[in-house]
Write a protein that binds this DNA or RNA. Structure first.
Lengths: 185, 185
DNA sequence: TAATTTGTTCATTCTAATTTGAACATATTG
DNA sequence: CAATATGTTCAAATTAGAATGAACAAATTA
């Protein structure tokens, strides 16, 4: 019951526009459109296309799907599917579901905005803030050196101002992330 | 007076780590560090490295710089510099400055967070929201078709819910952008 | 007007990142 | 245990996107 055969797809007719050889209507128009939307979306976030495809298909699927169905329906490699699912699990964008009497792992999309945003912020954004913070310390030292070595008082002021600015930006970013989280929650 | 010769750089010693052939100390350690910071930053926003380099150098330069100095100091091609400056102007991240008695165009970084954020939102994010909005309409139709064609009432409910969710997400995004703008302003 | 300077454009080249697929590991079944 | 099913890993192929540089246009100077 769980892994519904691909021929039993609901209404939607052929998908996948003309072009290559053996088109077999693996995806309905609705699925195609949703997937495309997510592919666009994740690209904006710097996440690879295949990950968007996987999430998109899971998002619009009524039942959880196993890896090999993602492979056959999306026509992506096993490797991509495996790695894509891992990223999505790490992001908290996909959860694995127990399906009775099935040996394969089944996955479904986490379709609530909050955990998605949180996962993305925690995994993709916060690490950068962290390393950025360290970098800023070194930067401050370099600016001081420059200010001292230069002899020129104007120069010192300028460099200190620039580094101070970067500090403020970082502070803003640190405040902003939780704010976004709360807003989407 | 304006296009200070590159040998007249302030304190900082050799930059550019070991490796390739003719290293010539075109960038001080401070400049190098700032540039690296911006290169990391823009990568996060899906903006090419060369653009980060250009903005970084302008940001930490006391005087406006002309295109050919960006080329020589950053060792990037004229093409990259030209295109990079254009993107930065479009983003509102760089402004051109009049320098008396100079034929070349000189540029300086816009170093206030607000216009930077606004430019990025307006140029990079809002266009996607726009096309996403159109896509959503088509999606809604497809979901209705699917719901009708499927015969299954459950299915209809599910697809409508999913599309409705996407609508809500888009709405949130539309609210969020101005909020971010205000916060950074 | 010819020569020079400055900047842009865009086809080609190069690079970084993604995708593939075969080899491998780990159950699971007969 | 051998055979099969499932999933992961990683070197190699592919692809998308960025950088290059030569050709061009426009402005300036001599």
């Amino acid at each position: 019951m769980a892994s519904r055969p691909i021929s039993a797809e609901p209404g939607g007719a052929v998908g996948v526009e003309a072009g290559a050889s053996g088109e077999e209507a693996l995806l309905s128009d609705l699925e195609l459109e949703v997937i495309e939307m997510f592919v666009n979306g994740v690209k904006l976030l710097g996440i690879p296309k295949s990950v968007g495809e996987i999430y998109g298909l899971l998002f619009i699927s009524r039942e959880p799907l196993p890896l090999d169905e993602l492979v056959s329906r999306l026509k992506i490699s096993k490797g991509s599917a495996s790695q894509g699912l891992r990223s999505l699990r790490n992001l908290g964008a996909v959860r694995s579901v127990y399906v009775a009497g099935e040996r394969r792992d089944f996955y479904e999309a986490v379709a609530e905005l909050k955990p998605l945003a949180s996962g993305f912020i925690k995994e993709q954004l916060e690490p950068h803030l962290e390393t950025g913070g360290q970098r800023l310390e070194r930067l401050k030292e370099l600016a001081e050196e420059e200010a001292r070595a230069g002899g020129d008082a104007e120069a010192g002021k300028f460099y200190r101002d620039r580094v101070e600015r970067l500090r403020k930006w970082e502070g803003k970013a640190r405040q902003l992330l939780p704010l976004i989280r709360r807003f989407l929650g």
